[in-house]
Nucleic acid binder design. Structure first.
Lengths: 342, 342
DNA sequence: TTGAAAGCGTTACCAG
DNA sequence: CTGGTAACGCTTTCAA
């Protein structure tokens, strides 16, 4: 494949000077090393002429840094992760870093394998949404002093940097809103896993319920259901088993979409028959009739903090700080689906 | 950062043997090089014990291959691209390749810069949705005999591998369906650009119109409109200016979503007042009331062909084939939004 | 002001 | 069967 690439050596030979000189000039150390103006000029001109680009690979090997950051999420085709990815990518490129994405499917073994292969690629930093049981691997990453930041969920036992949102607080607030709108019997539909963000959302929900003495039912959908259709059917069953439910809180948007389908199948009217609301805003919540109330995570801020944290750890100049633990506020977008008088 | 990593040299020293031997064993050439069973055993045991992993960086430098493929799309947060990315990623990992994603925003300069920086990272292959005016860069890639495959759109003048879908045929078929359902005056809403896929869709639409002698109007939305709201307003204007339109064909799903918003604002009923249909299926088209008719691209097949093509080019064993030009069929999902009697 | 050479971690050729 | 060593492309120390 690919024609032989010109190397720094070729340049040196062509110009009849040493590799060192070329290297210094390329790396902007001409001044510092007091290389003559004309030499510098000659070299830069030649480089521009032949369009030489140094090999990042060789640089990485030599310097022990690759300027690559891994962004490891549950599923990159998920809108939430894809959006963050997009924002991260932008900020990374601006700082001379590249991003490698990968999806874990929330499978520990896949995650472990991925981390191991990335370590041997000398990536500089890891941004990870941890799968269950990933503690030991994360610990080894910490021991090796790798730049690391968790997001979306974190591991309570570990003292790592992370960026998450106020799951519990927002879930509580949203639940209170539902109660405030007259809901007396609220169903919480979530995914059956012990990821912190899901647990916190449930906790927030229950806190509100307890506080106000309302009734509640909870449906935990197995994360192993691949076929979406199944999810919708589960929700239908849930609704028929608990006919008195007058509101539904979905812990994440894809569950809400399935819920919408279930509700339509049962001929339930939103919000007259049943009010609904979901965590994780989605562009289409604003489009659906009625518009769906939801809790919006601050994508931009999450990406910002993530990069700030990882870049901070990567900055050799800066003194190494203690792990940064960032918890960002969400925004409750109240729309038609949860309103009493609508 | 990171503790000193153990290298092949450390292993050789620790075991009192040569680097070469270790290297052979690691690379499974023990048999071939007729290294003794016990030596092999000793080394593999030791490697397992200390958990040694070879440096991919050094391997890449040495071998001139990085086992990295770049996936360069317009916008990775777009559902279509994110879904393909997910599928590609899976297939790549299975073959020992990693994927680096990046978004061009359909901006030539960004694309050029990206390609240049990836070249110096010795990536092995490029999967690209070309931006306008990217010809020269693509040509230089071809001259360097880089593994390359375009997708979503391609560059007619260039003899590259590509994977696209039957845009024209499907658009025509969909338009005929609309006419068949009694539409007499169809509006085509597209993005104002000369990307091949959009042009082909328009061509297919017009072909059907001409063939059947129907009426048509076309609205081209500038790709520079960032604010979605604006798009929706444009569509509203379009509809009020052409009140006789009885069907709308959206060339891509995000335009359809905005169209839905516009239609709702104008109080138009689908499909009674106006029928609609869109290119690029979306999970939510099936959820909306009424369900939206759309043309579904074969994501899985696209990803499959893309990887097949790039891996084929990367396979040193295989004789270099002429560029593979793949055109995949789509599927017209007829749903409620385009049906007469609904 | 410039150059020689070591070294980053591998692979693979050539000896023995 | 095993080992020495050049080379991949670069940075950087030390020397001139």
């Amino acid at each position: 494949m690919a024609k032989k690439k010109t190397s720094i050596k070729d340049i040196a030979e062509a110009l009849g000077i040493s590799i060192t000189t070329v290297s210094f000039i390329i790396n902007g150390k001409a001044r510092e090393k007091r290389i003559s103006e004309e030499m510098t000029q000659k070299v830069t001109d030649y480089i521009k002429k032949i369009g030489y680009k140094p090999s990042h690979l060789a640089q990485s090997l030599r310097l022990g840094k690759s300027r690559v950051i891994v962004f490891m999420v549950e599923d990159i085709s998920n809108q939430f992760f894809a959006s963050i990815a997009r924002l991260i990518e932008e900020k990374a490129y601006k700082n001379g870093y590249k991003i490698i994405y990968c999806s874990t499917d929330n499978d520990v073994n896949k995650a472990k394998e991925l981390i191991s292969t990335f370590k041997m690629r000398n990536v500089d930093g890891f941004i990870i949404t941890p799968t269950p049981d990933l503690e030991t691997t994360i610990i080894s990453l910490m021991e090796e002093e790798q730049a690391l930041v968790l997001f979306d969920r974190w591991i309570p036992e570990l003292d790592t940097s992370y960026v998450v949102v106020e799951n519990q607080k927002s879930a509580k607030e949203a639940t209170l809103h539902l109660i405030d709108q007259g809901s007396k019997n609220i169903g919480f539909v979530t995914v059956d896993s012990n990821q912190t963000q899901m647990l916190d959302r449930l906790a927030g929900f229950q806190e509100a319920i307890t506080e106000k003495g309302s009734n509640q039912e909870t449906l935990k959908i197995s994360p192993f259901i691949i076929e979406k259709k199944q999810i919708s059917l589960h929700i239908q069953d849930f609704l028929t088993m608990h006919p008195s439910l007058d509101a539904l809180f979905f812990s994440t948007n894809y569950l809400a979409f399935e819920g919408l389908l279930a509700l339509a199948a049962l001929g339930k009217k939103i919000p007259e028959d049943i009010k609904i609301l979901s965590f994780d805003d989605h562009y289409l919540f604003n489009l659906y009739q009625p518009k769906i109330t939801s809790i919006e995570q601050p994508l931009e801020a999450i990406a910002e903090k993530l990069m700030e944290s990882i870049l901070g750890q990567l900055d050799a100049e800066a003194p190494s700080k203690p792990p940064q633990k960032v918890v960002l506020p969400n925004k409750l977008n109240i729309r038609e689906s949860s309103l009493k008088g609508f």
